[in-house]
Design a binder for these strands. Structure first.
Length: 641
DNA sequence: GGAGTTGGCGTGATG
DNA sequence: CGCCAACTCC
């Protein structure tokens, strides 16, 4: 194996295979390269079986890339090696073992944030709590933070007995969890939490995975939360061959429970850990790196490190301040066209980054006017669309008819004359009998107060589901999808619709169909279960394909791990970036600054910072001041326009 | 039971 | 500005 193309530190990190290893990898210092070489080294030089390696990444996209790069480095295939995200690794473990946890069944479903919100709303209704006092999103974030910390509903209750409001949160949490169980569902946080529980309480299962994963690697370690830390420590306890890679300066997810302490305390937690710092940057010009270093220096409590590069000085940064967001967008798009001509750059060389998704719209409009091809990462996702979720709900019910939430979603979609009142009566009956709604559909004679017409429609619906369930035994997913569309009347409803929205809805359904075909082509496990799981765990960034050349727009968060020759960071204004919400706490302000650091270091050759003197947000126009982050960059590195 | 309208409210980033 | 719950009307 050829290790000559690596620098001294990189090489050291590759060959240090035994015992705990912490790699501090600055932005653009070639950490993916180190990880892929390390995997190849383990297999080719050390004779380790691929199946004994576990590599955890942050996104599916990163996992896929890593797999491809490892494959390229080696002669043998790495197909039975686990290179995946935390969530899909946990999904895999749970599929095989979840029945060892009381109350969960093998065919569990994964609830996304939409499902979660619906469940919380149900809880509030039942508990008679006001949505104004307990906004579902707030409730969910409290629950989610608790789960990150591995605080169960019961523990949460104990902890918060004395606080009037928090006790109510505890009530909601408890009921929420009960409802998930009733739906045989796990939310994203549960996937991790339940895996840790499974391993912690079942010595034999733990032993099995400890023995299997003799070598463990974790990417983006700075963004792990307590639960993920726990999972990793459990698995690595046996062999202690744990290699984590991260950069404390790029910790940008503390709002969802990431604990920067995990990386800062690694040496304490894993005694005898070796620490290697990768400080040579191969990505950016001196000027860009200089700017990044100056900004991040304003943070306290960092591990000392200093990124340097042998790259050239490059071009000066540019700060453009337009009169309003329209002018800002105009400048960005004009500049992209100009550079396209003068420097013969392709559209794929550019990225526009921003703090909030809402900022994309005006830039998008301007791209359309100028005929610049673009793609937007994040924001409203394909699988969030109503019609797609409807059809997925059908699949979920077929796979697991006792999932009340999905069943309620489709029982009257398309309209089949089963109204809210009737559904409530049905649900009530189910509740009293301790059954699912699906079961209650068989006991219609016993239910009073539903009119005969509705009952008839319910019977027909029941028959439809049973029919589809039978078909699912033999049909492929794509074929099953077609039957669902046909027999449910969903397709007909779409065809009858006249407005232009129906056309795009039909398009989306076709898109789902081709996703199913694609899935069956690419995967060995073609079960409905695994298809649904794949959909649930997919994130938007995973779809980012670079086949056609287009400008990329996304949030600064989504941009982590990516790089572009020319980068624009838009909306460099106080209150927007840094966000208003971060003013109250130094810690949060520091996280904003790390986000800025991440943004700057995405750029290879040219970096633009743009702002607007006047900005309209949610209908309100306000005057702005230029972001403090711009001022933290030395003046001589920036040209003002 | 269902379609259409209104008024109030929140509006950061995600697997 | 866009969404959702609540309300009105058929």
């Amino acid at each position: 194996m050829d290790l000559d193309q690596l620098n001294k530190e990189q090489r050291e990190a590759v060959v240090h295979t035994e015992g705990p290893l912490l790699i501090f990898a600055g932005a653009g210092s070639g950490k993916t390269r180190v990880l892929t070489h390390r995997i190849a080294y383990l297999i080719e030089e050390k004779g380790i079986y691929p199946s004994n390696i576990l590599a955890i990444t942050f996104t599916n996209k990163a996992a896929r890339e890593m797999k491809e790069r490892v494959d390229k480095l080696m002669d043998i295939s790495a197909s039975n090696m686990w290179i995946s995200t935390f969530h899909s690794a946990c999904a895999k473990i749970l599929r095989m073992n979840i029945e060892r946890l009381p109350e969960y069944k093998k065919n569990f479903v994964i609830f996304d944030s939409d499902d979660q919100e619906k469940i919380v709303k149900e809880c509030l209704k039942e508990l008679n709590y006001n949505e104004k006092n307990f906004p579902p999103r707030n409730v969910l974030s409290v629950i989610s933070r608790a789960k990150d910390q591995m605080i169960t509903a019961e523990k949460f209750m104990e902890k918060n007995m004395s606080d009037f409001k928090m006790r109510k949160f505890a009530d909601i949490y408890k009921l929420y969890q009960d409802k998930l169980k009733k739906n045989n569902a796990l939310d994203f946080d549960d996937m991790l939490l339940k895996t840790v529980e499974l391993l912690a309480y079942n010595e034999d299962i733990l032993k099995h995975y400890q023995d299997k994963f003799k070598y463990i690697m974790v990417d983006e370690y700075q963004d792990t939360n307590y639960c993920q830390y726990k999972l990793i420590s459990l698995l690595a306890r046996q062999h202690k061959n744990l290699c984590v890679v991260g950069d404390d300066d790029q910790c940008i997810y503390s709002w969802r429970g990431a604990d920067i302490g995990n990386i800062l305390n690694f040496e304490k937690d894993f005694s005898g850990a070796k620490v290697i710092k990768l400080e040579q940057n191969y990505r950016s010009t001196k000027t860009i790196l200089d700017a990044a270093n100056h900004v991040i220096k304003c943070n306290y409590g960092r591990k000392s490190k200093n990124l340097w590069t042998e790259n050239g000085v490059g071009k000066s940064l540019i700060h453009y301040n337009g009169s309003d967001e329209r002018e800002e967008a105009d400048f960005i798009t004009a500049e992209i066209e100009r550079l396209g001509m003068e420097e013969t750059r392709e559209y794929r060389d550019f990225a526009v980054l921003y703090r909030t998704n809402a900022q994309s719209r005006i830039i998008e409009e301007m791209c359309m006017t100028r005929g610049i091809p673009y793609k937007i990462v994040g924001g409203f996702k394909f699988y969030d669309r109503k019609e797609v979720k409807d059809i997925i709900a059908y699949l979920r019910v077929i796979q697991n008819p006792t999932g009340d939430l999905s069943l309620k979603r489709i029982i009257n979609v398309p309209k089949r004359g089963i109204g809210i009142a009737s559904i409530e009566k049905l649900e009530n009956h189910a509740k009293v009998a301790g059954d699912s709604i699906f079961d209650a559909l068989l006991e219609l004679e016993e239910i009073e107060g539903i009119n005969a017409k509705a009952k008839k429609n319910m019977r027909e619906f029941y028959r439809l589901i049973v029919e589809l369930m039978a078909m699912s035994e033999t049909l492929s997913i794509a074929e099953l999808l077609k039957e669902v569309l046909e027999r449910s009347g969903y397709l007909k409803e779409l065809e009858d619709g006249e407005d232009e929205a129906t056309e795009s809805r039909a398009d989306n359904i076709r898109e789902l169909l081709s996703a199913a075909i694609e899935f069956e082509k690419k995967n060995e496990d073609r079960t409905l279960e695994s298809f649904l799981e794949k959909l649930a765990l997919m994130s938007d960034i995973d779809n980012l394909d670079s086949s056609k050349s287009a400008l990329t727009m996304m949030t600064l968060h989504s941009a982590k791990g990516l790089e572009y020759p020319v980068v624009f960071i838009a909306g460099m204004e106080e209150g927007l970036f840094p966000s208003q919400r971060s003013y109250f706490e130094d810690k949060q302000m520091e996280e904003e600054r790390r986000l800025m650091y991440v943004g700057i270091t995405r750029a290879k050759e040219k970096l633009y910072l743009t702002s607007a003197f006047e900005r309209t947000i949610y209908g309100h126009t306000t005057y702005t001041t230029v972001s403090q982050f711009v001022k933290e960059i030395p003046k001589d590195l920036i040209t003002r326009i």
